[in-house]
Simulated scan of single mutants.
Amino acid sequence: MTEETSFPDLDKINNQPIDDKYRVAKDLFAGTIGGITQVLVGQPFDTTKVRLQSDTTGQYKNTLDVVKKLISNEGPQGFYKGTLTPLIGVGACVSIQFGVNEYMKRNVFSDFKILSNSQYYQSGLVAGVANSILASPIEHIRIRLQTQLKGNLGPLDIIKNIYKSNGVSGLMKGFIPTAIREGHGMGMYFLTFEYLVKQDILKNKVERKDIPGWKLCLYGAGAGYSMWFSVYPIDVIKSRLQTDSLNKPIYKNMFHVTSTIWKTQGLKGFFKGFIPTILRAAPANAATFYAFELTIRLLG
């Protein structure tokens, strides 16, 4: 029996009835739950990563040094600086990611009984690019909150400061590298997860809803690794742009950032903060996919 005829019904793979008129709303809600879960699990790792990525003075030696200094100077709560913004923002972003990805799978490629790896990648790519419009300003605000060493500005304070200095374009600073990261990153992200799910379904002759939670977590962790290994350098470039001075910026554009990092730090400069990112990838994305899939199952 060939892969194409193992399951003639697309619903067997996606576990979502195509004719459900509330399908989009359910996808978006489940994505929001996944995003909130991702933030709660991954924020400490993300704060550590951003501190390393944006360090241009050499105040941090390595990941452990960031953790020690953050706890010493700001307390454990310092890991959750700027959490409110990502809790709302990332919830919305992940909602878009999953919502658009599911729409692509269900509607754009509806004529295919089982999607190919290329189609899974394309679905994730479109989802990532769509999400980057929202993700870029949210991450800009989040990063400036996370890198505060003195003071305790809130999200609205950060927005006012950015707008006062650079207007709307300032809020969208770093959009191009964000779009590149999100597009290719989400393509790899959803491709990896969906490929692992599809192979499990076809090999074990089960339906998507019957895949146990521990496997969903494992596949989600794999998706997180796949994404970050493929886009990390562009994330460093994005972080440098978004933590640049508002009044006297050092960098002209992403190409200027790239050349500066290469000249001053070489290849290793593009991987600053990589360790906390990879440590975060498994638990944060395992939790994200598990929360999304579980919510979809509960909603029906």
Rank of each mutant, 00 (worst) to 15 (best):
Q148M: 13
H140A: 06
D11I: 05
L246T: 00
S245I: 12
A221Q: 01
K21D: 10
K263G: 04
I88P: 00
Y22L: 14
I275H: 03
T192I: 07
T288R: 11
K150I: 13
K164T: 03
N107M: 06
R142N: 12
P212Y: 04
R106M: 09
F175P: 00
S6G: 01
Y251Q: 12
M254H: 10
V50A: 03
K105A: 08
P76I: 02
V41I: 15
P44K: 05
K21T: 06
G224P: 02
F274R: 01
I13D: 10
Y163H: 14
I96E: 04
Y195M: 10
M104I: 03
A287R: 09
R144C: 11
A291R: 07
Y290H: 09
L10A: 12
Q53F: 08
K209G: 14
E3K: 11
E102A: 14
V66P: 00
W214I: 08
V41D: 03
M227E: 01
Q265T: 02
V66K: 07
T178H: 03
F112T: 09
A281D: 09
A284D: 12
K252W: 14
I296T: 09
I18F: 05
I13G: 01
A179C: 08
H184T: 07
L84S: 03
S95W: 11
Q97R: 07
L134E: 02
F109A: 09
M227F: 06
G35D: 10
Y22V: 01
E182D: 15
L64M: 10
S110H: 08
Y22M: 13
L149G: 12
Y290D: 01
L115C: 04
G42A: 14
I143C: 04
V39T: 02
K105L: 13
K69Q: 12
Y225P: 00
K69C: 00
M188Q: 10
D20A: 08
G213P: 03
L70T: 03
A284V: 03
N166R: 15
W228P: 00
Q146T: 02
D46H: 09
K81P: 00
R23L: 14
